[in-house]
Amino acid sequence: MISLKDVKSILIIGAGGGLAKLTASLIAQKFPEISIHGVDPRDTDFLVRKENIKYQRMKYTRGNFERLFREKSFDMVLHLGRLSHAQSDQASLSKRLDLNLMGTSKILELCLKQQVKKVLIMSTYHVYGALHDNPVFIPEDYPLKASIKYPELRDVVEMDQIATNWMWKNQNQIETIVLRPCSIIGPQIKNTMSQYLTTPYVPVPIDFNPMFQFIHEFDMAKVIIKCLDRVPTGIFNVAPDEVISLRDAKDHLGVPYLPAPIFILEQAAKIVKMAWSFPDYFINYIKYSCIIDNSELKKHIGEEFCRFGPKETLELLKLD
């Protein structure tokens, strides 16, 4: 198994994201001899440069990736560039299908061709779906039911499946890790959950109170590094042991909210969507729990991999 000590260069796809920036900084700090190359279609000028981190603004096209892999060689590839499904219109759907599915396939194909030693792909716990009959502690081999109710999550599920199928098919040639983290929150992360938690006067269901696992961005970045360093090929859920209910999380943050029954929320979401990008599937995630099992990951990186519990994570979000 390859470890970070044997690595000379790492490619980070989606390097402009909060988690990617944090991960790059931590790797650069701990392993100054590794050269990090970050690509992102967003503006990379504002990103903090370090001696061993280089950023490149690049449109995610087949040609660009082929050129990148031709010109540079990488020992590890971190695919953190999944396009968020925070918007649910048709245009963004086709964009997502293009990048999340076609893009991922192409990147994996190039990794194999260029003899990359390890690939880490960031999926999400959303793939399991938030359903009323979810067991608590969903293991990695549980069916991915997210797209049953919300077709808008189909690309997320399919991207996960492309990655996992590819992983098992090529396990003798390349180490691949697929991570399915719970909600990542932190001052640098601007996902739907962070926005929902911190925005005042958003409606919160009074007739349901699902449990949540929150991982702090810093803990998540450390998990990624540990995975690159010492975790073998496989699919791993990433979540802390502790949980918190939605209403407790809101109360803990001290952000005022509007309590409302879920059927009103569903109707309100249709209106809110006109002004604010609000994904349809999100309603279900604030209605039913989707608690994932972290025992597989613990076998490799130890029991205490999270420094912050959910309440501390929320405290840190409050400081933002």
């Binding site: 009959d133 979810n134 067991p135 608590v136 349901f208 879920i262």
Partner: peptide, 18 residues
């Protein structure tokens, strides 16, 4: 609605093997 979270707070869980 209402009943499920109230029962869960009191200890009930979905009848599932896991």
């Amino acid at each position: 609605p209402f009943i499920a979270p109230w029962a869960a707070e009191g200890g009930s869980v979905l009848g599932d093997r896991t």
